[in-house]
Design a binder for these strands. Structure first.
Lengths: 348, 348
DNA sequence: GGACGAGATGTTTACGTAAACATGCGGAGC
DNA sequence: GCTCCGCATGTTTACGTAAACATCTCGTCC
């Protein structure tokens, strides 16, 4: 029944690609009828439909998406421009975007940018313009877009993640500030007099906002604000910060701007004989899967990357469907604090 | 000079999309000449070329990739089917694929599969067939493809990662066996009598091969082969294995099939007062960025994901350019052992 | 029984691009 | 001075699909 050996190119080198016309010829109908069957339109009598379906099966017909896109002026594809997939947050956001997009019948096209210079972003946008894409999601620290010199191709809808360009673009992001507040308040509630802080890179809006919130909570509570230590998201920079902090006898609590830097802190403290949480409490940010298995398990702020991804796609689709320009605004996804064993009240 | 305010939709609501015909009209030439300019063909006098370019700029012309694809029968896009982006290996491989593909003028389209059932993979292939894709790279534990019931759309080229289907498909993968051998030999060379092992999930070919190699090295060396402990890649399963292993007083060395499980081991050992590496040596696999900042820094097998990605793209492009069917075969990327501080000679 | 209508199917056309072929122009060679 | 050739540019056509319109065949109703 099933044609065997059909997975290759059967019958020598048949025509490169099967079109509706081929199916129509075999089924003895017009190509328009094939189109109707292919798209599930009504008004095709079932015997005809069966014939067409049989012909499709026999020839291995698959619709040509290029022709379809040309006809409809739509690609059913969303482009994602991003700096790097190697950060947990980005890859999980992308995964969520891809999943959600698939559920909506959209594919996603990835455009990685090795170095986030103005030129490269511009180039990516240009390429996106030429690409088969109905909307673009940008995952990036995006001051680059703020200069105004970047010309987004008209007709391409944009959603931005991790940016404060909410006045110009449609922005979706984790509620960084709220997450950071939760972290710092948790430590204060435990009885710590103040909280030290390891920042992310200055170029990151997410990092900036976490740091701002940390400072704001301390100031509101009337606590001293220790000088922040500067990190760059990497475990290594956390390690360096940890060596520094271990020297401050009055440091009893640290809020690291992400989990990897918290990991570096943990290692540094461990090597220097500083016990966590007995001597110093540590809170991270992200809640990467491994965080529960750090030594000790890390108290951290959970980000709902899946939700961010979902809202990105939703925003993009809204724009596509409304055919409207981007409605600027910021959509914040809430966080939650996950308390594990790296935090405790200070020793008296 | 530069038209201002051009970033939106200038001039009210001009025609939805600028075509070559529009440019041609404005420039006072035929659309064919526009095409020639657009594609950098010779035989256009420079004054004409300038006129056309000016018209393009003024109208914000961007070529329609759907029409182009229809014309050429090519999409300049590679599809990537994968199970999950959340594993480090996958996301880094995808990133490398995306980067390499971009360098070759190809975009990549992501098709995530939530649950790797036969049906879902089939569905993904079907969708890929309908999608605008010239080749497909599958990153997946892929016995599913081995059943033979999955009918790959003819004309779509396939490269597979993490599979032993090298007899049927073009496979690119890290040299898992060699990496595992390096890990086990390192431990034996340090003087350990034998090496215990935490496996990956049974469904993973990568995991299987690492386990096979572990066993083979021990047997070759005439060492006893302890019963392997079964993990599932997660830190959690490593943690469970660690609790088990800590009870075996004769266990002095463990090879975990990935770094996350090694992390779980480290945590379990730490909690139970087993010192690493003094009491037990631990080796992982992957060399995730954090591995250098575990407590203690993890000795592990480095995988060159970037190279895997590069070769995938290369393989896919070769197939596209040769217009040939997949040439089955396996292309192995070498590994290297990174010695850090989680391994040491056994106590006497 | 004839007209009308509804439903099934066929025909024409356009989407934007670019190859293939056609035209028209000017200069070189005799 | 005329022909021929080469180069710049224009015209036609096809890629695969599907909307819009056209046609054709019944069955139904008066």
């Amino acid at each position: 029944m099933v044609e065997r050996g059909g997975s290759g190119v059967p019958g020598g080198r048949r025509k490169q690609r099967v079109s509706m016309a081929d199916v129509a010829k075999l089924a003895g109908v017009s190509s328009q009828t094939v189109s109707r069957v292919s798209n599930g339109h009504p008004g095709v009598i079932s015997s005809t439909r069966e014939q067409v379906l049989a012909a499709m099966r026999e020839l291995g017909y698959r619709p040509n998406s290029a022709a379809r896109a040309l006809r409809y002026g739509q690609f059913n594809t969303i482009g994602v421009i991003l700096f790097s997939l190697s950060s947990t947050g980005n890859s999980r956001t992308v995964e969520a975007i891809a999943t959600q997009a698939a559920a909506e019948g959209y594919a996603i096209t990835l455009i990685p940018i090795d170095v986030p210079t103005q030129d490269n972003v511009l180039g990516a946008f240009t390429r996106m313009g030429e690409l088969a894409v109905d909307a673009v999601i940008v995952i990036m620290e995006i001051h680059l877009l703020d200069t105004g010199t970047v010309q987004l191709p008209p007709g391409v809808h944009v959603v931005v993640v991790d940016s404060d360009a909410g006045d110009r673009y449609s922005v979706v992001d984790t509620d960084q500030a709220d997450g950071a507040r939760k972290a710092v308040r948790h430590l204060l509630d435990l009885g710590h007099r103040t909280v030290w802080h390891v920042t992310g890179p200055e170029t990151s809006f997410a990092g900036q906002r976490r740091t701002q919130a940390w400072r704001a909570v301390l100031e509101e509570a009337g606590r001293p604000v220790p000088p922040p230590l500067h990190g760059d998201w990497s475990s290594e920079s956390g390690y360096a910060a940890g060596q520094e902090l271990a020297r401050h006898p009055d440091c009893t609590a640290v809020f690291a701007s992400n989990d990897q830097m918290a990991l570096g802190l943990l290692r540094a403290f461990h090597e220097l004989g500083v016990r966590v949480p007995e001597d110093i409490s540590v809170v991270g940010f992200d809640d990467i899967p491994d965080a529960a298995f750090f030594v000790p398990p890390l108290t951290t702020v959970h980000q709902d990357f899946a939700e961010v991804g979902r809202r990105c796609v939703q925003g993009a689709l809204d724009q596509i469907r409304a055919r409207g320009a981007a409605r600027p605004g910021t959509d914040l996804v809430p966080t939650s604090l996950v308390v594990r064993r790296s935090t405790a009240p200070p020793r008296i």
